[in-house]
Every structure is written in structure tokens, then in C-alpha cells.
Design a protein around this nucleic acid. Sequence first.
DNA 1: TGAAATGTTGGGGCG
DNA 2: ACGCCCCAACATTTC
Length: 476
Amino acid sequence: MNLMWFRTDLRLHDNTALHFAQKDSDCIALFIISPKQWKFHDDADCKVDFWLRQLQQLCQDLDDLNIPLLIRTCELWEDCTDTIFELCEQHNIQKVHCNQEYGFDEMQRDQAVAKKLSTHDIDFEAHHDRLLFPVGSIKNQSDEYYKVFGAFKKVCYERLDHLQHQLELYPKPKKQNKLKISSDTVPHSVDGFAPVPQSLQNQWQIGEIEAWNRLDAFIDQHINQYHVERDFPAFDSTSQLSAYLNAGLLSIRQCLKAAQINTDGDLLSGNEGVRIWLDELLWREFYSHLLYGFPKLSQHQPFKEETIHIAWRDNDSDLRSWQNGETGFPIIDAAMRQLKHTGWMHNRLRMIVAMFLTKNLLIDWRSGEQWFMQHLIDGDLAANNGGWQWSASTGTDSVPYFRIFNPITQSKKFDPHGEFIRAWLPELAHLDEKAIHEPYKSAKKSSEEIDTLDYPKPMVDLKQSRQRALDTFKNL
DNA sequence: TGAAATGTTGGGGCG
DNA sequence: ACGCCCCAACATTTC
């Protein structure tokens, strides 16, 4: 008997570990609930809820195949070792299969489990599954990790040409003989994680079929214009697949396979939209490889060592204004409210609000990283940390410190008609597309009109705060 | 996967 | 016709 240990790979189709767990033996499945560990990692309420809802679906689907799903609770991951070992003894498990995760804590956990099992002749294998290219397989001639995305990407594209033609998805597992073990009940909630509004659940429905439908809709309707439309948050032109990829309802290979449809089987045939989307998937790849290669990233250490010395402003009140979407800059506030209410934020907006927090407010990027993790349904350590360090100019290949976004300019550029702002800031909905980006600017506005505007004044002077950030970084 | 400051050019108004 | 100024439009540099 084998054991399939599910983590962030909650699907039946094209699941490497699951495929091998069942290849030459029956298997049982396990999921471990870790409330304290999840809290320690700042996992969001909505993300945990998403996992639990998907687990219920998965449990049913596994039952149809006579694969029982066992649920265990280990407050911290260090407790996993004994739990898994006991389970292996109890069910006479020969081998434990799982799919590799790349955070430092995750790898430590897996190593500890593997070590314990090996002393009792039980095999443990963490499969390459979550990424296109195995971590550690893309390095330069000096056998070092690429620190620049462009160079990393180049190698990926060279290998992609080969990879795409031998993409074989693992089928759904076959039905086993019925075992004398029954599935546990998947809980509806976990201690320490608040219930999630129905509206948010409706927006992020679970199921592999839902994930495929989203993927197909994106490939059908949006990918060909992706390079043109992806930067405009008022359009639903991005794939919105991050939550599904992150929890593993969808595999990265399924994504590639689907994109091939629009390129006559060759992803590299010149479809601009497809190519830019691939670039985005490769950013995901890049940051996961870095997380694996540089364990300090898992400890939230900056990649660029000298940036440890930046005197970030420790200002709770400013941080809260940013968190609550009360900065007085409409594009920022709309974005922060979108995050809070939907568990998701458009990528362009993630950059704008991150830049504002780290440069204009000069607040430590880790505060923003944490807030994002606590609210994102797609929160992923590698991508989130990578994105924040990019914006804060503390990462490798991050934005140069002097390239500071102006939130008003960005707003006019990427939400030209103010549609996105209007959707999230009803108090500004009556303003026209000229005034809405900067409500207090228009000199023609009567003072009465300004007095009745139920919206905060800009919390900082952009010019001064920009200069403060430039000085701070220049003096490093 | 910028923005602001500074420099250059060229057309039009005007004496 | 010409020089001068203004300034928008564009280009380059700087942060």
C-alpha cells in the first residue's frame, strides 16, 4: 500500500505524485490540517476556506475511486513526522508520495519525514510537479542560479521548445478495489480562521472542472489580446487562474497544453498574447526557483544585503490607511478594497500599491508582504515575496530604486476612464474621468463641492515623498 | 513592467 | 524678410 500526501496539489488529473502512488499498488490519501503553521505563514482566511471547500470535493471524487482520504491535524509541521509514521505503520505503507514544495519550512518538514521513514524502510518521494522545470535545473555556466529574469527566461524558452512537444498529462487515477478504510469528514472550518462571506465563495468556486472552464474561457476569449489588455484592471482580461494554480486545482502542464490550441500546437509560433502570458508563467517559475535556491528568502530576508540598512518608517497609522484603502489616492484605495473584498488584486495594481507603500510611505515591504498573504486567495510565498522585493527594490533583478511609479499617472494610464475606481469607490462615482484620478485637484470645483466629498485627502505629497525615497536609497 | 528634469527643435505670433 | 520670443512637442538625461 502507498500513501498519497496531498498538500498544495488538490486535484486528481495530471497529479504526478498521485499517479505514481497508484501505479503499482493501491493507495490511501492524506491531508494534514496545520492551524498554527498556517497562521505562522499568514495564510488568508479565504485561502484556507478555498482549500477546505476543494478538499470536500476531492474527498467525494476520491471516494468514487475507492481511495479513502484521511484527515489529520498537526498544529505545527514538526508534528507531521510522527503522525505520518504512525499512519504508515497502521496501514502497512511501503512508500509515501507527495509533490515537492519549495519553501524552506516545507522542505524541512519533508526532510524530517523522509528521514524518520527511511529508518523503518519506508520510502518517501517528493515529485517534481508544480513547475515546468525542476528547481535547480536552470543554472548558468558557473552552476549558479540565474538572478536576472531575462537570462533565466532565455534558457526556459530554449527548453520549452522541446518540452512542449512531449507534454503528457497523467490521467485521473483508476478505480481501486474497495478498502476497509473509510474517509474522514472534511471540516468546514479551522480554528483561528474566520468564516468567509458567501459572495467571495461564489466568486471563487472550487473544483477541477471550474478551473478547466476558467482556463478554456481565458484561452478562448482573452489570450490573443493578453499583451494589449492585461494591464487594464477594469477589463477581466487576465486569466484569474492564480488561486487555482496555487492550490493545485490546475497543473502548469494543463495550462501549456491549453495555450497550444491557439498556436497550432507550437507555443513559440509567434502569437504575441500567448508569448506574454508564457512570460508571466515564467515569472512564477523564476521566483519559485529563487525561493529554492536562496533559503533566506523564506525567512523574509532581502535579496540585496545592503537594503537591510534602510531606515523604513515605522508608522502604524500610515500602514493602516494603506491597508484600509484610505490613502486619498483613488487607484490605490480602489485596489486595496478589491483585495479585501475579493481576496484578489490585479497584477498592475499590486505593483502600484506596493510601490506606494515602500517608496512614497517608505514602509517596510515585509508589512505589505504580510498583509497581502493575509488577504490573498492566491497567496504564494515565492511569487508574493518576489513581487514585493521587486517593488521595494530589495530583490534581485528588481525595479531600480529611482523608477518610482506616480500613482496618479499610473491611474490615468491604466484606468483612463476611471471605470475600475468607480467600481470600488462609490463615493467618487459621480466624478468624471478627468477629476476622478485626483479628486481634490480640480481648481474649478466649488469649495462646497469639495467639502461634501466623502473621501480622504491625499495622505502624502507625492513629490516630497518621492524625493525622500530617492535620498534614502541613494545614501545606502 | 517610469517619472521628472533638462535639453532641443520648430512653428507661429509679433514687431 | 527677419529676428526674437514663446511654448508645445519631442528627445535625452538623471534619479
